[in-house]
Design a protein around this nucleic acid. Structure first.
Lengths: 138, 138
DNA sequence: TGTAGTGTCTCTAGTCACTAGAGGTTCAAG
DNA sequence: CTTGAACCTCTAGTGACTAGAGACACTACA
């Protein structure tokens, strides 16, 4: 049996975050000591590792809830799990695309001014003030 | 003079967001009609366009505050503005890098299972449960 | 057995950048 | 002068935590 602190060390999930996951229903309520402290078993550890891993991949709490639901019904079709992963993938792709456009614009912005001048003539500030300086749409 | 709704249409910033920016000190308080409604001039429009543009590029409200401060002092060095832009650029680059790693992992994840099977054998769920299935660090 | 120090408990409030809604007032067109 | 859209303020909610207060529990050592 692990205390919440030990669980935290093993999974690298912070203690308040573990309690938060419990409150959100991602983790089932663990046993307690006589003094009301949480004690986790291996199943709890594995569950939290699953959550942590999914969060690291950017899945939302809600998506993780659904994945956990599925885990709990091993006989059900896993189409839903695949759908969630695919949706997550396309979100990530969209974010990357958007960030690339921003990157391009910011490179232009920061190359346009070496910081040696004075605010009045600053290319960064001028570019932000007026869209027509921009190289692309964003 | 523009009403807040007109300003909203011209800048594509939603009305409550404009009020929020005012509250945050990004926009100075505009004149009011006798009936207490906001009326903006061209300077207000330009200021909001600046903010919108910077937000679209991912600058934080705090960073934008600093940029506006600088704008207000045209004689000051623009080193700070360039610094902010460069910092923003490196953040964006870091995000892209991280998202690429996630993308790779998610591609692997969603290719591993066509959704045709049953939750118990699902590669997506198995991968999330156990890090050792992963192709890389994340 | 006593005690010191660390870990844990619950609860509230704060983060960021908005968004939604209630309930009331003002404006502009016809 | 009436109607209906736009506007006002205020509070509360979003997601996924994080921080802090004040109290209680556990463990190691004397």
């Amino acid at each position: 049996m692990f205390s919440i602190g030990e669980l935290s060390k093993r999974t690298k999930v912070k203690v308040p975050t573990i309690r938060y996951y419990e409150e959100m229903g991602l983790l089932s309520e663990p046993e307690r000591t006589e003094g009301n402290q949480r004690r986790y078993d291996v199943a709890g550890l594995e569950r939290l590792s699953f959550i942590k891993h999914a969060r690291d991949l950017g899945f939302s709490i809600e998506a993780i809830s659904e994945l956990i639901e599925l885990q709990g019904h091993p006989d059900r079709s896993c189409q839903a799990a695949t759908d969630i992963a695919v949706a997550q993938l396309s979100e990530v792709k969209a974010k990357i695309k958007r960030l690339r456009a921003l990157e391009k614009e910011l490179v232009r912005l920061s190359k346009g001014c070496d910081g040696g001048g004075v605010s009045e003539d600053c290319y960064v500030l001028a570019s932000l003030a007026d869209h027509k300086f921009c190289g692309n749409e964003h």
